[in-house]
Amino acid sequence: MSLTPAIRVRGLVKRFGQTTVLDGIDLDAGRGEVTCLIGPSGSGKSTLLRCIAFLEEATDGFIEIDGEPLGFAAGPSGERMRLPQSAIRPVRSRVGMVFQQFNLWPHMTALGNVSEALVIVRGMKRRDAEARAMAELEKVGLSGRASHYPSELSGGQQQRVAIARALALEPRIMLFDEPTSSLDPELTGEVLNVMRDLAKTGMTMLVVTHEIGFAASVGAKIVFLDHGKLLVQGTPGEVFGKPRHPRIEQFLDTYLDRGAATLL
């Protein structure tokens, strides 16, 4: 078994104008493991995820997916070189992304959303792509909603379709950017259950979340970001167990209701 981490981030810096959002992040996400990114709003956790999805280009530093450089590589004398588009695409295609706002395309049915890239990007026949899409919808428990448009689905159902859309492309790694933050509490559970099932299949997952209970129970590794820096990382026991890092104590007190914090 290879020891190369599924995701390796080294010295990642992201600036928006004068603002430094990520200030030198080093992170390894283990293969087949669930890594949860937590931290206060504005700590840079979503930006880090978006850099790994290559939706944002980091200002400095390197990202490797399965040992292969994403977007930028070190040149002969260590300088940072942008890779050509042809080298970026195959690496990106190993990564699936799930957004806070679902981002389903409103003019396509659930089946259309899931099968679209299979037809347009992978060149599958429409019939084969739809069969595959149907199997993915089945996995998230929505084969009965295949012909529904996003506007006809609840938020939880939309997010499950979005997960199926990403999974249809058979990624090696799944990124989740606050997947339940725009859902009502009673719809959060159905999405978290799908994610739990996915974790059990051995999918490598990197999850930005405020669901501390989910992070503690499913996460193999918890990473706490604060002001663009990686402050603490470790197993849920190490990060949440007492004695806690004072910043984490404060975070749990401030950002969660006390009831949830005592469950840990």
Binding site: A53, L55, R89, R92, S93, V95, G96, M97, F99, Q101, N103, L104, W105, P106, H107, E116, A117, I120, V121, A162, R165, A166, L169
Partner: peptide, 26 residues
């Protein structure tokens, strides 16, 4: 919404495919 285009980008649609399949109909 910008996210609809990011979703297209993430599943590998290029610019002209995104224009034809996502932007125009939407």
């Amino acid at each position: 919404p910008k996210g609809h285009l990011e979703a297209a980008d993430c599943v590998g649609l290029d610019r002209s495919q995104t224009m034809r399949r996502i932007i125009l109909p939407e």
